[in-house]
């Protein structure tokens, strides 16, 4: 079979990235310029800072990816890009870059959904075996997704309020830990007994998630202690928050998996790097028939290689876009080609 080579651009949030991947598997290049250091100063992702830095970085990132791959843009089969969801200003930069390349080199465009990319990223380290169940956990998303095949996508459960990564960031801010909050809480909580009682999440849908009440619970806990002049231990609070949040996820995931038949269960998104979540997943699936995929950190963070993998499957399924499409910050999976 003929090789399919995809050049992909990602700029939905912190990272300006470009990658060239062959057959959804072989990474010829994968270049990422990150803005995390800039954002650390502000305690979050700031859209204007993000888009301005993307403008400065995107051309250099594309040049480097092409040079490292040792091919020319003319050699690729299609240009994939992240159309959404994400920060509007940031997305525009990547969309424009992709359209410019596609126009100049007469290549088809593949508009890609950011979360689909995170799931497909796992194909870089293993062969995806559909049907599969994906737990997508990141700063902007928390979803349990069932994929019957490589073009289907069904959300079984999702957060009804805050995303898990957002809850981590907000709790980290209360504990003065800095941004991004996930790794800092994970580190602080390691091996610490989660002995503070926090409110348990409640949702209506059987597989839905909720983290807003828990976040408020942590805030009220801190307020109460301050008001009464009582001291509390940051690490114990971090551990208690983390344990409650992750138990909510595991509980819903294990309920959801009993309703479908899948070959694989995989983690996706930035929070997949969380060490406690990985421990819990490994434990829960040690005696089950489904194959568990725990991707390494480089697969979980935002990069363009994952967009190229999703692009490869989109190319095979002929899910092409056109030049009239623009960035869509609230993009839904099923409309990514519309």
């Amino acid at each position: 079979m003929k090789d399919i080579t995809i050049l992909a651009i990602e700029s939905s949030c912190d990272e300006s990235a470009c990658a060239i991947v062959r057959n959804g598997k072989d990474i010829l290049s994968n270049v990422v310029a990150t803005q995390i250091e800039v954002h650390e100063k502000f305690g979050g992702v700031l859209p204007e800072v993000a888009s301005r830095l993307h403008v400065e970085q995107i051309s250099a990132v594309i040049d480097e990816a092409v040079e490292k791959a040792g091919i020319s843009v003319g050699d690729v089969d299609a240009i994939a890009y992240t159309r959404g969801p994400g920060l509007i200003g940031s997305l525009h930069v990547g969309v424009q870059a992709a359209k410019t390349l596609a126009w100049a080199y007469h290549k088809p465009l593949l508009p890609i959904h950011h979360i689909k990319s995170h799931i497909f990223a796992n194909n870089l380290i293993t062969d995806l075996k559909f049907p599969l169940l994906a737990l997508v956990v990141s700063g902007g998303h928390s979803e349990i997704v069932y994929m019957k095949d490589d073009s289907s996508y069904e959300i079984l459960g999702q957060t009804q309020d805050d995303a898990i990564g957002e809850a981590y960031d907000k709790v980290a801010r209360v504990l003065h830990l800095g941004y991004p909050g996930g790794p800092k809480i994970d580190k602080l909580a390691k091996g610490v007994e989660p002995s503070y009682k926090l409110p348990q999440p409640k949702t209506q849908g059987a597989f839905d998630l909720s983290f807003s009440g828990l976040k408020s619970g942590v805030l009220q806990f801190v307020d109460r202690c301050n008001r009464k002049g009582e001291s509390y231990d940051d690490a114990t609070l971090a551990a208690s928050f983390q344990e409650t949040a992750l138990n909510e996820i595991m509980d819903k995931l294990l309920k959801a998996i009993d309703t479908v038949e899948v070959n694989q269960v995989l983690l996706a998104g930035g929070v997949a790097a969380n060490s406690r979540l990985r421990e819990k997943m490994a434990e829960a699936f040690s005696n089950r028939s489904e194959e568990l995929i725990l991707p390494p950190l480089w697969v979980c963070t935002d990069n363009a290689a994952m967009v190229a993998v999703a692009g490869y499957f989109a190319y095979k399924n002929k899910e092409f876009g056109d030049f009239s499409q623009s960035a869509k910050p609230s993009l839904k999976v099923l409309e990514s080609q519309k």
């Binding site: 509007i88 700063g139 902007g140 009804q160 309020d161 805050d162 957002e166 807003s212």
Partner: peptide, 23 residues
């Protein structure tokens, strides 16, 4: 969320903190 429901929006309205703007 309650307002969205009252406006007849079916989508799940989630926190826009991360994306700043949701439509």
């Amino acid at each position: 969320k309650a307002l969205g429901k009252a406006l007849g929006i079916d989508d799940v309205i989630t926190s826009p903190t991360f994306n700043i703007l949701k439509i």
